[in-house]
């Protein structure tokens, strides 16, 4: 398991991490990484990798795909590090954006290959396993429904309703205005409800 990065010895640390002001800590750490500090990368990953993985898993409902997206997002972060301008954007915002884009790329490919009606159903499992699989099937159905939405709507809906970001935060992630965010999330959620309507029993909800 991953260890506390602070516990790892480092012979080289050009930027004192404790001197970094709160609020832009990851940005300062990224600059330190670009200057060759290996400790900085570990701290950034410890702070943000679980968040990126969770965002990808909520959108994709597929652990292996979510892990690939997480790796890809961080790879892009390391490669942009030398050009990173501290103060212009937060690393967490940048990662939200890249992760959302990578996920909608994968949802687009999934939409081409698998239809919404082709979601696999669990077959005669034990009760506890059945509950877990029912939950997984629900999340997969939600992910497949997101795949049917226009990409910007899918991103706005997921950032709002899966990540719990505020509209101004989503506006920063998507680089659009707050009004556009409100419009995208409202239309996206209505479309999502329409896609999932009539699948209540399949999703484990009572149809009444």
């Amino acid at each position: 398991m991953y260890q506390n990065p602070r516990a790892m010895p480092s012979a080289f640390q050009p930027v004192p991490a404790l001197a970094i002001p709160q609020g832009d800590r990851e940005g300062a750490l990224l600059v330190a990484y670009a200057n060759g500090d290996p400790e900085a990368a570990r701290e950034i990953m410890a702070a943000l990798a679980p968040r990126v993985l969770a965002q990808a898993l909520r959108m994709l409902a597929d652990r292996a795909e979510a892990e690939d997206v997480t790796q890809d997002a961080f790879l892009r972060l390391w490669r942009i590090a030398p050009e990173w301008r501290q103060g212009e954007a937060k690393v967490s915002t940048w990662l939200h954006r890249v992760t959302a884009n990578l996920c909608t790329d994968r949802l687009r490919r999934r939409r081409r290959s698998v239809g919404l009606d082709e979601v696999a159903e669990p077959e005669d499992p034990a009760p506890s396993v059945a509950a877990r699989m029912q939950g997984e099937a629900r999340l997969r159905a939600l992910s497949d429904a997101l795949a049917q939405l226009p990409e910007r709507q899918a991103q706005a809906v997921s950032l709002r309703h899966l990540e719990g970001l505020s509209n101004p935060e989503i506006a920063a992630v998507m680089e659009i205005g707050v009004e556009a965010v409100e419009s995208l999330t409202a239309r996206g959620k209505r479309a999502l409800a329409a896609l999932l309507r009539g699948r209540k029993a399949e999703l484990g909800y009572d149809e009444d």
Partner: peptide, 27 residues
């Protein structure tokens, strides 16, 4: 979906760490 909590596996940490080290600009 929002309540979903996930912990990166040791294998994922290893992949991430390997990438970070490979891409790290050398001082």
């Amino acid at each position: 979906a929002r309540a979903l909590e996930v912990v990166p596996s040791a294998a994922l940490w290893a992949r991430l760490a390997a990438d970070a080290e490979r891409e790290r600009p050398r001082p």
